[in-house]
Design a protein around this nucleic acid. Structure first.
Lengths: 238, 238
DNA sequence: CGCCCCATTGAGTGGTTTCAATCGCAGTGG
DNA sequence: CCACTGCGATTGAAACCACTCAATGGGGCG
């Protein structure tokens, strides 16, 4: 079962066994890739979409000076570029953070799914809308929070999302991001990330080492980052 | 024809006459509303979605101190909360800026559409993905640009989008936003918006009066805002 | 007429950036 | 085996952008 994490925490519970089988049977290829590898360049026509099975992937845009702004970080179970299916080409680049294992789906296959499985189609649609909800939260994060809040919020989000797929336990999880990477996700400089992380460490909120985050005081971190997980639709009762 | 602007510049050209008729016939109600009216509150269960026919609508989130961060501005032709259909409830509030005219669609009706019109469904999906693309551009705007660039970028985006629906001509368009509103969209203070606007005015880039924007030097403004319209999928050749 | 909100401007403060330097670690090649 | 190299982590100092506080004037509305 390659797709064991597929849409876990993204409406997965609403899928029937038939629908899960359709997804599993629709996989075209499964590949492993090293870290720091670009998968898709902005503007390229795309004919297939990528489901992240293991590892981390980010999406980003470059400014005029070549500086990156991350617009999304993806964890296992995420359909990284499903939006490329209706959109045909993307407005941003996609690259791996650490090494990854991914499954690909041909867009022709996805078209067939939309013609035969309306409910599954709405679930796929929902998955892309959840990405949009995270985008909105990132807009809030960058627009209303200072450097400390931005970092705190990012760690809170990753903790919840990784928890949903069983990759975070008690606030501890692997994360193949460097301090400059965090800077690109938070719209601040790498130097300042370092200072802010020191502050958070000294306050006993968390520790950050290469490839490992330990959230020591979740309540404090959530307060600093003004974090509420509603937007992740974790417990959708509606 | 209430829906003359429906998805104009959002893949509208890919719709058949039959599909356009289905949309027109699916309207449940048409209403007019005054400015500064909240349509939807975060967390509320939603049973219908709203197509903006005339006027401007914004989506926003509040921080802990009650300060708003706009996450989207909508122009006529936009399906403002189509994402509420698969999502069932929203993670943010929606309110009018100036007075508006809107059409509503029951979610039951939309479900029927997804079961009978796969291609139209993909077009609706595309429309929500375009909102996500704009979200990403806003993340970039807030993460990588200074106050001047953020404002310039916002005006450039609105100029293109309003141009697509015939509401901007030669860089001149109506916009019922105050300086504090612009501040909430750009993650800066109202006072600072005032100063930056003065700078842009003195450089001959644009003028901003209550309800009217005049872009005098589009090239300069696009350079300041690092604006490229690719993400709006204006001329989708792919 | 009074009130509130928007627009505008000044002065001082503070969060972040920029520039700069050091240290550690891993990969590379002599 | 070790110098060389590059990148990430860390810290200091100075400069700058944007914020806060404060005050004034203008316009719409009850």
């Amino acid at each position: 079962m390659q797709t064991e994490k597929f849409l876990l925490g993204r409406g997965r519970e609403d899928l029937s066994d038939d629908e899960k089988r359709v997804i599993e049977d629709s996989i075209a290829t499964v590949r492993t890739l090293p870290g720091r590898t670009r998968l898709i360049r902005a503007g390229e026509r795309v004919e297939h979409s990528t489901l992240l099975l293991e590892g981390f992937i980010c999406r980003y845009m470059d400014d005029r000076e070549g500086q990156r702004q991350l617009v999304a970080v993806h964890v296992p179970g995420d359909f990284v570029d499903l939006h490329g299916f209706p959109m045909k080409y993307l407005d941003h680049d996609i690259a791996t953070l650490g090494p990854v294992k991914v499954a690909t789906f041909e867009h022709d296959t996805l078209t067939t799914i939309t013609e035969r499985f309306p409910h599954l189609t709405r679930m796929l649609w929902f998955s892309t809308l959840l990405d949009a909800a995270m985008h909105r939260e990132w807009i809030f994060r960058l627009g209303r929070l200072g450097a400390e809040g931005r970092l705190a919020h990012l760690f809170c989000e990753l903790n919840v999302r990784l928890g949903m797929v069983g990759l975070a336990r008690d606030g501890v999880f692997a994360l193949p991001m460097t301090q400059p990477d965090l800077a690109e996700a938070c719209g601040i400089t790498g130097v300042h990330v370092n200072r802010v992380l020191r502050g958070l460490r000294e306050r006993g909120a968390l520790t950050f080492k290469a490839n490992e985050v330990r959230i020591l005081d979740r309540k404090a971190l959530e307060a600093i980052g003004e974090f509420e997980s509603d937007y992740l639709y974790v417990n959708r009762t509606a």
